[in-house]
Design a protein around this nucleic acid. Sequence first.
DNA 1: CTCCTTGATAAGCTTGTGCATATCATGTGC
DNA 2: GCACATGATATGCACAAGCTTATCAAGGAG
Lengths: 143, 143
Amino acid sequence: MTDRPDLAAMLQPLSRALVDAERPVLDEHGLTMWAYIVLLHLDDHPTRTQAALAESIRADKTRIITVLDDLQDRGLIAREPDPADRRARLLSLTPAGRALRDRTQAAIQRKEERLLARLPAHARQGFLDALRVLSALPRDEII
Amino acid sequence: MTDRPDLAAMLQPLSRALVDAERPVLDEHGLTMWAYIVLLHLDDHPTRTQAALAESIRADKTRIITVLDDLQDRGLIAREPDPADRRARLLSLTPAGRALRDRTQAAIQRKEERLLARLPAHARQGFLDALRVLSALPRDEII
DNA sequence: CTCCTTGATAAGCTTGTGCATATCATGTGC
DNA sequence: GCACATGATATGCACAAGCTTATCAAGGAG
């Protein structure tokens, strides 16, 4: 084994610092972290039930409800009963939601690019490739 | 800007999953996450005051006290008044503390290696290089 | 139709943690 | 010597998050 610090010991402080750095951006756009995560996720993955959404973003299914209430009140998401199963609520981004998501993500990624710029090219590329691979792993395959 | 998910959106779940995966290992070794972080940090960075330790591991300086109490009771760290300033407590690992740290870290890194093995070589190297660079940045330079 | 399950929601409990305050011992500047 | 700052410690507040239970609506199996 090569001599290196623990992965988690490097990843955890880094992601904490990153989240801290992004909080002001989210504030400017009127989003909480959970709200932003919901917008991001709904854009990529159509989600049929709120419980499934909660599970896939690792949120508590009861706590996510007020977040969804708020997003819906502000016209950023739509939450309609599934005609096929009226217990479930079909979740989707509204155009306003998608626009806000895009603006917010652009601002966040602009900041992130400044961080990536500090990396040598090979590390930058490898870092992004590694993150993509590892992020795509199902949760129970992380070690 | 290349099209990619947010860094934080990839890093955060990954580091959360990693921490989850490591918790059983820590349990086996009788350490909490905070206790392990303290052991790791004391090994690398001699620390003169508890407040400085708390700051550098981003722990609350009042909350860290019970962690230190416990580590001291178990003979894993020494906490002696600084002869030059008897308000301060010089913190250091005992041999037992270092041994436990080493055993625990070896177990953790064995698991982490299995995760890294899933990455193509260039990504693995770039990932580790990037993490080293980014971890070395002072906190206020993270974006 | 009846029983059981599932989805959304509300409410409460508990834990972790960030933050503020207070106290006591010790140092330092004047 | 005295006022003030600093370090360790205890305590209490507030809030976020995970977990549990209960309720209601709706669906499915027998």
